[in-house]
């Protein structure tokens, strides 16, 4: 055995930029990510600035102007009480986004934590936590949310909590499933043999390696949460009149589809675009955050073979 023992060297590259800068650069290079980023920026801006930029009062009825078609004065037309649909869509952005973000935030935090504990510790922790999740999951989503609201009382804050609870089992399940496979990986054994404790292993090795399905689920759930809020508001348990939310506007507009299509179409389009943007961004983000995909996206295939 006279072979030299020094490893063949990789070509040297420019000094590395901080990882988050690189992440942004890669996102900026994807047209899909840029497009969905623009849509979401617009929605967030609308939510934040609704009070200042909306041309009319979104809540005050104006009987003389009711059911007017879109025009220069009322860009998206008016509803059956004469309220400006454009102003209401702007104001609804805030409600829908907040409900989506808070509800998904709740189910993400609770579900991922439960999934990590159940998948990592197995045994009775797994049994107890996942059976509770099964019970929650066994009810139809909306029925469960209605039941929770019946206990907590109506209103958009409670609607967020209810939706958050309803979607928790989905996050718990996908997290647990990924944790089950990752915890058996050799690199987890390697960390343990080096003396890493459970907290370090879960936080540094398991969690980062189960993010891909969670990111996708988050973007899908944001969409579902916005729709769920719409449904809850429709039956009168979510956002209370006269506050606008996209879901409420959609359900109110349903009754006037033949006379005033604009009442349902514009809030519907807003939901559609926002949901689509979340999904696309989630997809791109999942790829960008994976070091292996990342290399491919950088277009510099390096170091293989030998």
């Amino acid at each position: 055995m006279s072979a030299g023992e020094r490893a063949d060297t990789l070509p040297s590259t420019a000094p590395h930029r901080p990882r988050w800068v690189e992440t942004l650069v890669l996102l900026a290079r994807s047209p899909m990510a840029v497009a969905s980023g623009l849509v979401l920026t617009a929605v967030v801006a609308a939510a934040l600035l609704a009070g200042r930029i909306s041309p009319h009062d979104p809540v005050e009825p104006s009987v003389d102007d009711r059911l007017q078609a879109p025009s220069g004065e009322h860009w998206f037309g008016t509803d059956e009480l004469g309220r400006d649909v454009f102003s209401r869509v702007l104001a609804g952005a805030e409600v829908s986004l907040r409900v989506g973000a808070v509800a998904v935030g709740i189910s993400l935090a609770a579900g991922v934590l439960i999934g990590l504990l159940a998948g990592y510790y197995r045994r009775w922790v797994d049994d107890v936590l996942m059976r509770v999740m099964d019970v929650v999951f066994a009810f139809p989503a909306l029925l469960m949310a209605i039941a929770v609201l019946a206990i907590l009382g109506r209103g958009s804050t409670n609607a967020m909590i209810a939706i958050g609870i309803v979607y928790t089992p989905i996050f718990a399940r996908i997290t647990r499933a990924s944790v089950l496979s990752v915890r058996e990986e050799v690199y987890v054994r390697a960390a343990r043999s080096a003396g890493a404790g459970d907290v370090r292993i879960v936080a540094r090795h398991v969690l980062p390696n189960v993010t891909a399905p969670i990111i996708v689920q988050t973007s899908v759930s944001l969409a579902f949460a916005i729709l769920s809020e719409a449904a809850l508001s429709f039956v009168g348990l979510g956002t209370q009149p006269p506050d606008p939310s996209w879901g409420r506007m959609l359900s109110e507009g349903r009754g006037f589809l033949e006379q005033a299509w604009w009442m349902a179409v514009f809030p519907g389009a807003a939901i559609f675009l926002t949901v689509l943007a979340f999904n696309v961004l989630g997809d791109v983000l999942r790829d960008v955050l994976d070091p292996r995909q990342r290399a491919a996206m950088k277009g510099t295939a390096k170091g293989s073979g030998g």
């Binding site: 990986e185 050799v186 690199y187 054994r189 390697a190 960390a191 043999s193 080096a194 003396g195 404790g197 540094r204 090795h205 980062p208 390696n209 994976d290 070091p291 292996r292």
Partner: peptide, 24 residues
């Protein structure tokens, strides 16, 4: 004490493709 012991012992694994955390 087990943690202290783990500094004094180490393991090299068979599969170098599985033994390194791909995210780090």
């Amino acid at each position: 004490e087990l943690r202290a012991l783990r500094r004094r012992t180490a393991m090299i694994f068979q599969d170098p493709f599985a033994s390194l955390d791909p995210r780090r």
